[in-house]
Design a protein around this nucleic acid. Structure first.
Lengths: 342, 342
DNA sequence: CTGAAAGCGCTAACAT
DNA sequence: ATGTTAGCGCTTTCAG
């Protein structure tokens, strides 16, 4: 069994003061004299005192803890975002309770319940790709727990959200490609029900329309956000002998799938088939050729989300104003989509 | 302010029973009749009851929570391990408190303190690369909190640990290379103070010695575990006009740095310079050529660590037996180190 | 099978 | 500047 740890009262007894004095001294409360504080602190250090968060939180009703819900971890985008969130939390003396939905809506719901049980001070969430039922968010709201939606956001009114300029970023990529001379452009579009799938498609459409390039419906392929989908979608077009000149993918793993497929059927990137994707990952620069993309500044997404959350946690008067932040993207050209050989 | 949530006593009052009855019913305690349980459960659901973890844990002295400390998140190896840990935890109804040391020893220490404060039932840790002071682990031990060391383990006696067969894996890789005909083999060896650096070096040495191949000290380069180090170490050898035929790297990011450097100076992999690395990452198969490696089965590492931890949490009698598990590795040959053109 | 009493370790509010 | 009282919401005895 876990050994009994030192309590406030143990220190108090030893010093012949009350527990309240110790409690206040340890928290640097102005009530307490410098001398007493020093005494208490050294006794605490000497005795190896560690505060009990459960007790502290129960009586203070403040946990200094933020709950985070993400669909995945072992993925560059979410990995980077989580790392930034941890950095910001650490700087502000907050702890993170990280939960992973594994793209599963039921699990996501359960995690949110747990976070409420844990009395987190606020929640940051990026939705699973199958989340349709938003009722849990009403519960969160009813509890008065601030929640910020990040990147994968629900179609709801009156929420705080941070997302990248998916539509504008896609537009930039396609416009660039068109100016290069590309006309036969396919889009591997992920799930249209998820906001990022939808918005990125719209950006694609905007650009095609602006330059009066017809969209070939056979070249708009829906599926997921992963490598397998990219691989298979490519193979289908290849088998049908219906390959475009350029493929714009909704995420970089989808592009990775195409790299694999192209190499298997001995097609050269970027000459035989060119690619550009949405989403930045360090590994792209090690690919051959290095993959060009629309960047998603993960650190900005994380920092902005945390900033909004802290604001909501600290100013409860602002309960009825909602903050919506769009993070700008940039076109990052590497070894693909830099010229058109067609 | 966070709204007041439903309490046990609210349900009790409504049902005209005691809070104890409600508490027991909700936890499916055998004391309570089926009829009462049903009544309580439906009332709880209807009223939107969420248990308060703080209160529950404070009185029960069990948190069903495991603390995890890792050096990084946005890294394939740790990302995968963490994901597996979350899976196992979820299946066993445990929560994870994940903390990130960012390879910083002071931060790591502070995180461990926090986990103790949070009264986690157990800890799983992979050390930062600069951790030298092990005294905090004595505190953990004194508190009676089970702790399992994983992959990056300290040089301590009487601890539970899980690690991959670094030495044997390295040996396998180098032996394979030698049999291919390679003799001029360099090793980018990371930090020799960290166990993985040390063991992987020893495996390299074992193989070289077994086949009587002299080790060129200029080709043993120490540094870190990241891309920059790989890049710079390679560039140094290149500038000195002192390149080997094959480089064995301590991690895959180091190999990535070499890919980048080689491409900059127009050297072809694997013909001009061949590579093999320790550590598997999905992206390796998308490199050109696909990078061969010694695998580290992340799921096994995670599962085994959790298994040991649960065992320690549940059987406190086994306090003085320590479990040491070595996870076997395999050689995964892709596009490098598959023939020797020298 | 049910409930009354006590307390987990801490902090907030109110004295002194 | 320090202490007293009360209570956070729950579970654990132990009595009925």
């Amino acid at each position: 069994m876990t050994k009994k740890s030192i309590r406030l009262s143990d220190i108090a007894e030893k010093l012949n003061v009350s527990t309240v004095t110790v409690s206040k001294a340890l928290r640097d409360h102005p009530d307490i004299s410098y001398k007493t504080k020093k005494l208490v602190n050294s006794a605490a250090a000497e005795m190896g005192y560690t505060p009990n968060f459960m007790a502290r939180n129960l009586s203070s009703r403040k946990t200094n803890t933020i709950g985070v819900v993400v669909p995945k971890i072992a993925h560059f985008f979410f990995g980077s975002i989580i790392e930034s969130i941890y950095d910001v939390a650490f700087q502000n003396n907050y702890e993170i309770i990280l939960t992973v939905s594994q793209e599963n809506a039921a699990r996501e719901r359960q995690h949110i319940q747990t976070l409420l049980s844990m009395k987190v001070d606020g929640i940051i969430i990026s939705l699973s790709q199958e989340t349709k039922d938003y009722s849990i968010f009403d519960i969160v709201k009813a509890r008065g727990v601030p929640i910020v939606f990040m990147d994968r956001i629900p179609q709801m009114e009156n929420i705080d959200k941070v997302y990248v300029d998916d539509r504008g970023g896609s537009f930039k990529a396609i416009e660039h490609a068109i100016k290069l001379g590309y006309k036969k452009i396919a889009h591997f579009a992920g799930y249209p029900e998820v906001n990022i799938g939808q918005q990125r498609y719209l950006g694609f459409e905007d650009a095609m329309n602006k330059y009066n390039i017809p969209i070939n419906p056979e070249w708009i392929i829906h599926g997921g956000f992963g490598e397998t989908y990219g691989y298979e979608a490519f193979m289908k077009l290849y088998r049908d002998n219906n390959l475009p000149d350029l493929i714009f993918t909704v995420t970089y793993p989808v592009a990775l799938g195409i790299y694999k497929a192209a190499s298997e059927v001995n097609l050269q990137i970027p000459n035989d088939i060119d690619i550009i994707c949405f989403g930045d990952a360090k590994i792209q620069k090690y690919l051959s050729p290095p993959l060009s993309c629309v960047t998603q500044p993960t650190n900005l997404i994380a920092e902005k989300s945390m900033e909004i959350l802290f604001q909501k946690i600290n100013n409860h008067d602002e309960k009825d104003t909602f903050i919506e932040t769009e993070i700008p993207t940039e076109l990052l050209l590497r070894g693909t989509c830099i010229s058109c050989s067609k």
